[in-house]
Computed example of a mutant assay.
Amino acid sequence: MKPWKAALLLMFLSLTPLLVKAQATAGVGEQEVFRPHLQHEVQYGNLFGNDGQEVQNGVSLQYIGTYRINPYLAIGAGLGAQTYRFNSGYSYFPFWAVFKGYIPAAGRVRPFGQIALGYGLALNRKEEDLLLVDARGGFNANSAVGIEIPVHEELGLLISLGYQYQAAESTYDIANWWLTDSKEIQQLRFRRIHLQLGVKF
Rank of each mutant, 00 (worst) to 15 (best):
Y92D: 08
G156D: 01
E154N: 13
L117M: 07
I193L: 15
G78H: 01
N50L: 00
F139N: 03
V133P: 06
V145S: 01
L8A: 14
N70F: 07
E127Q: 11
G146T: 01
Y44V: 15
A106R: 12
N57A: 09
N87Q: 13
G78M: 08
I115F: 14
I64N: 07
G76A: 10
Q53M: 04
P150V: 06
R192F: 11
V133R: 12
P36S: 13
Q43W: 00
E154P: 14
K5F: 13
V33F: 02
L130V: 04
S60P: 05
L9A: 14
A26C: 03
H37S: 15
L15Y: 02
Y102A: 03
F190P: 09
R125W: 03
A81K: 13
W178A: 07
G146P: 01
S14T: 09
A74F: 09
S60D: 08
T16E: 02
R125I: 00
A141Y: 04
L10G: 04
L121K: 02
F34N: 06
D173R: 12
R110I: 12
A6W: 02
V199Q: 02
L188S: 09
P17V: 04
L79Q: 06
Q39W: 01
L9I: 10
W4L: 06
T83W: 09
A122N: 06
N87H: 08
G76R: 06
N46H: 11
R191S: 14
W4V: 07
L10C: 02
L161D: 10
L38T: 03
W96I: 01
A97F: 14
G80T: 12
F95C: 05
V28W: 01
R110W: 01
W4R: 02
Q23H: 05
D181S: 07
Q164P: 05
V199T: 10
I75R: 05
S143T: 15
A106W: 04
V145P: 02
H152G: 00
V33E: 12
R191Q: 15
L130G: 00
E127I: 13
N140C: 10
G29N: 08
L47A: 04
R189L: 10
L123I: 12
A168R: 05
S91L: 00
